[in-house]
Amino acid sequence: MSIRHGLLALLERGPRYGSQLRSEFESRTGSTWPLNVGQVYTTLSRLERDGLVVQDDEDDQGHALYAITDEGRTELRNWFETPVDRSSPPRDELAIKLAMAVGAPGVDIRAVIQSQRHHTVKAMQDYTRLKAQALADVPANRDEVAWLLVLEQLIFQAEAEARWLDHCESRLVRLSEAAATEPEPQPRAPGRGPGRALARTPARVG
C-alpha cells in the first residue's frame, strides 16, 4: 500500500497537518487500512527529505502544515499514470499456507481449505452488507464514492478467493482419486534384472 502517494494526493487539495491527513486517508478508504499518526509523520519526513513536500507555516491551533511541491505533483502524476506492477506480486499468506500444507504430515488440507472458505465467505457477506448500507445513502461526496470503490474491490477479491479455494479442493480430490486407482508397483524377482538376463544370453558367432 502506497501511503506515500496517498498523502501526496491529499496534499494536492491543499496544506494539511499530520492527524488531519490520517483522518482524511481513513475516511477516503473507510478505515480499511488504518494509519497511526507516527506512520503519517514518518512518511511526511521522508517526503520532505525527497523534496516532495515542505512545511508550510502553521494553522490557528499551532499545527505544522505540509504542502506539496512541484516535484511532488510530478511524482503524483507519474503514480496515477503508471500501472501497478504485477510482475512481482506481494507474498500471499494463504497461497503459501496451502502450498506448505500439501503433503505435510498430520495436516488435513481439505479442512484447512474449508475453514478458510468459511472465513472468506463471511468476510464477503460483511463487505456486501456494508456496500448495501453505503448505497442506501446515495454517495454525495468524493470520500463516499472512494469508500464504495474500495468496498467493491474487497468484494471482488473475496469472490475470487472463494472460487480459487473451490478450485484447490477440486484439484486435491482429483489427485486423491488418481492416486487410489494407480496400480501398486510389482516387486522385481531376485536375479531377474536386465543385467543378469543379458549375461545369460549366448554371444552370436558371425
Rank of each mutant, 00 (worst) to 15 (best):
L198K: 12
V112W: 06
M100T: 00
W33T: 14
E159L: 12
V54C: 02
I96E: 15
N141P: 04
T181W: 09
R49H: 05
Y17T: 05
G193N: 06
S31A: 11
A136N: 08
G62P: 02
A178D: 15
E12A: 14
Q125H: 11
E71G: 07
T201W: 03
L149P: 00
D85A: 00
I109G: 01
R200T: 14
V138P: 03
S115W: 04
G72M: 05
Q39G: 02
R49G: 04
D126T: 12
F25K: 14
A158K: 13
D143F: 13
M1C: 04
K122D: 06
Q133F: 07
Q116S: 03
A146Q: 15
T128H: 12
K131A: 06
F156Y: 15
G72N: 02
V107W: 08
H167G: 08
E161K: 07
E71R: 14
D85S: 01
S115R: 10
A64G: 10
L149T: 14
H119A: 15
A197W: 01
S87M: 03
L172P: 01
F25G: 07
Q55L: 09
G72V: 04
T29G: 09
L52S: 07
L35D: 12
V107P: 03
T120S: 10
W79S: 09
H118R: 14
G30K: 07
E152M: 07
S45G: 11
D59G: 04
R77M: 11
G195P: 01
E12N: 10
Y41L: 12
L98T: 14
N141F: 10
D85T: 00
E12M: 08
R16S: 09
K97V: 04
Q125E: 10
V54T: 13
T32F: 10
S19T: 11
D137F: 03
L149N: 06
T69F: 03
L76G: 01
L65E: 02
V102G: 00
Y127N: 13
R142N: 06
A132Y: 12
P187G: 01
L130F: 11
E81M: 04
E159I: 08
H5Y: 04
P105W: 03
N36W: 00
A179C: 05
C168S: 05
V37K: 10
V145M: 08
D85H: 01
E58Q: 12
D59V: 01
R110Q: 05
S27Y: 01
A99Y: 09
Q20S: 07
T32L: 07
K122A: 15
